[in-house]
C-alpha cells in the first residue's frame, strides 16, 4: 500500500519535473502576432528616382532638370516620369546627379549618403548616337572619380541616348563599369538641338 503510494509520488514528481524543465528552458520569445498588424519596421531605403540637373556654363542662370521617377520602387506600377533630355549643341554644361527615395514620407534625398560613401560608388555615362564628352569633376578619397558632379562638352546637333549607371563597389572600386552591383541604370533619350 505504502509502496504504491510512494510510486504515485514518484510518478508525479518526475512528470512535474519534466513540465517545469520544459517551461523553464523554453526559449526565444516569438513575435506577438495577433491581430497581425502591418509591419512596424520600414523597408530599407531604395532608389526610386534620379534627377539630372544641367547648368549652362555660359549662362549659369539657365538651369534644366530631367527626371526618371518610379515612386513605388521596383515592380508594382511602371515609372511615372521618364524625361527626354533636351540640351543645346556646341555648349558646355555642368551636370549634377541626385537620387531620391520617394517611398519615404517625406521624400528622402539619398545623394548625400552616396557622397558619404564615395569610396564605394561611381557613376558612368554611356552615350550612343550623340557626340558628347563627359568629364568627372569630383574625386573620392582614393583619387578615383565619383560622378555626382560632371562637365559635359556637347558637340553637333543629333539624337541619341545616354545611359546613367550608378555602381555600388564596396571595397572593389577600380574605375571600371563592370565591377560591382548596379544601384541605378537608366536610359534617357538625348536630343541635342
Amino acid at each position: 500500500m505504502r509502496n504504491e503510494h510512494m510510486k504515485k509520488i514518484k510518478h508525479t514528481t518526475v512528470i512535474s519535473a519534466l513540465a517545469i524543465v520544459t517551461s523553464l528552458l523554453s526559449c526565444k520569445k516569438d513575435k506577438d502576432l495577433s491581430p497581425l498588424p502591418a509591419p512596424v519596421n520600414n523597408p530599407p531605403e531604395v532608389i526610386t528616382s534620379l534627377h539630372l540637373t544641367f547648368v549652362d556654363s555660359s549662362n549659369i542662370s539657365s538651369v534644366q532638370t530631367f527626371k526618371f521617377r518610379d515612386p513605388d520602387g521596383d515592380g508594382g506600377n511602371p515609372p511615372v516620369q521618364r524625361d527626354t533630355i533636351k540640351i543645346s549643341a556646341n555648349k558646355t554644361y555642368s551636370v549634377s546627379v541626385s537620387f531620391f527615395d520617394e517611398t519615404k514620407n517625406p521624400i528622402a534625398n539619398i545623394t548625400n549618403e552616396i557622397n558619404n560613401e564615395k569610396n564605394d560608388h561611381q557613376l558612368f555615362f554611356n552615350f550612343s548616337g550623340v557626340n558628347v564628352q563627359s568629364f568627372y569633376l569630383d574625386k573620392d578619397g582614393n583619387n578615383l572619380p565619383i560622378g555626382l558632379m560632371n562637365l559635359w562638352r556637347v558637340k553637333a546637333t543629333s539624337n541619341g541616348t545616354v545611359k546613367v549607371v550608378l555602381k555600388h563597389q564596396p571595397g572593389i572600386k577600380n574605375n571600371s563599369q563592370s565591377t560591382g552591383e548596379s544601384d541605378a541604370d537608366v536610359d534617357f533619350q538625348l536630343k541635342i538641338q
Partner: peptide, 9 residues
C-alpha cells in the same frame, strides 16, 4: 520586361 530604375527586369 518591366522597367525599373535599375533597368529592365
Amino acid at each position: 520586361l518591366e522597367l525599373t530604375i535599375r533597368g529592365a527586369f
